Computed example of a mutant assay.
Amino acid sequence: MAREPTRFRNRTLAELPLFATDEELGEAVLGWERRKQFRPLAELHERSGFPAIHPAWGGRYVPAVKQYLDHMYALVERIPFAPLGKEGAFHVERKKPVRAPVKHNAGE
Score class of each variant (00 low, 15 high):
residue 83 P to H: 10
residue 13 L to V: 07
residue 68 Y to Q: 09
residue 106 A to C: 07
residue 94 R to S: 05
residue 70 D to M: 14
residue 78 R to E: 14
residue 34 R to T: 01
residue 103 K to S: 14
residue 89 A to W: 15
residue 8 F to R: 13
residue 16 L to Q: 02
residue 5 P to V: 13
residue 84 L to G: 01
residue 53 I to M: 06
residue 33 E to G: 00
residue 80 P to I: 00
residue 79 I to F: 12
residue 31 G to E: 01
residue 104 H to I: 15
residue 100 A to G: 03
residue 42 A to H: 12
residue 34 R to E: 11
residue 43 E to L: 15
residue 19 F to C: 03
residue 88 G to R: 07
residue 2 A to V: 12
residue 9 R to Y: 14
residue 80 P to W: 04
residue 45 H to Y: 14
residue 49 G to P: 02
residue 47 R to N: 05
residue 82 A to C: 10
residue 44 L to T: 11
residue 49 G to I: 00
residue 50 F to Y: 05
residue 71 H to Y: 15
residue 68 Y to N: 04
residue 22 D to M: 00
residue 26 G to K: 04
residue 25 L to S: 00
residue 4 E to M: 08
residue 39 R to L: 07
residue 105 N to W: 02
residue 35 R to M: 00
residue 62 V to A: 01
residue 59 G to M: 03
residue 48 S to Q: 05
residue 83 P to R: 08
residue 36 K to S: 08
residue 13 L to K: 04
residue 94 R to Q: 09
residue 88 G to E: 11
residue 96 K to M: 11
residue 37 Q to Y: 09
residue 3 R to A: 13
residue 69 L to N: 06
residue 70 D to P: 11
residue 78 R to D: 14
residue 31 G to Q: 02
residue 40 P to F: 08
residue 66 K to E: 15
residue 33 E to R: 07
residue 102 V to H: 12
residue 38 F to M: 05
residue 103 K to V: 14
residue 102 V to T: 10
residue 29 V to C: 11
residue 20 A to H: 03
residue 96 K to A: 13
residue 77 E to Q: 08
residue 61 Y to H: 15
residue 93 E to N: 04
residue 30 L to N: 00
residue 77 E to Y: 09
residue 73 Y to T: 12
residue 55 P to I: 15
residue 27 E to D: 09
residue 82 A to S: 14
residue 97 P to G: 01
residue 76 V to M: 09
residue 84 L to N: 08
residue 58 G to D: 02
residue 11 R to W: 03
residue 36 K to Y: 06
residue 93 E to V: 09
residue 74 A to V: 10
residue 9 R to N: 03
residue 31 G to S: 05
residue 7 R to P: 00
residue 7 R to G: 00
residue 31 G to T: 02
residue 98 V to S: 02
residue 52 A to F: 04
residue 24 E to I: 00
residue 48 S to R: 01
residue 12 T to R: 10
residue 81 F to E: 09
residue 7 R to Q: 13
residue 10 N to M: 03
residue 15 E to N: 01
residue 38 F to K: 00
residue 29 V to G: 06
residue 75 L to S: 14
residue 49 G to E: 04
residue 100 A to V: 07
residue 89 A to C: 01
residue 97 P to S: 02
residue 105 N to R: 14
residue 80 P to R: 05
residue 14 A to H: 06
residue 5 P to W: 03
residue 8 F to L: 11
residue 85 G to H: 00
residue 100 A to D: 08
residue 81 F to Q: 12
residue 31 G to F: 02
residue 24 E to H: 06
residue 73 Y to L: 08
residue 32 W to Y: 13
residue 16 L to W: 01
residue 33 E to L: 06
residue 32 W to R: 12
residue 66 K to S: 14
residue 14 A to V: 07
residue 70 D to E: 10
residue 87 E to V: 06
residue 104 H to Q: 13
residue 42 A to W: 06
residue 6 T to P: 05
residue 102 V to N: 09
residue 88 G to Y: 01
residue 25 L to N: 03
residue 34 R to Q: 13
residue 25 L to Q: 02
residue 67 Q to A: 15
residue 91 H to I: 11
residue 62 V to Q: 00
residue 48 S to C: 05
residue 50 F to E: 03
residue 76 V to R: 09
residue 88 G to H: 13
residue 77 E to W: 08
residue 70 D to H: 12
residue 76 V to K: 03
residue 38 F to A: 01
residue 40 P to T: 01
residue 32 W to V: 10
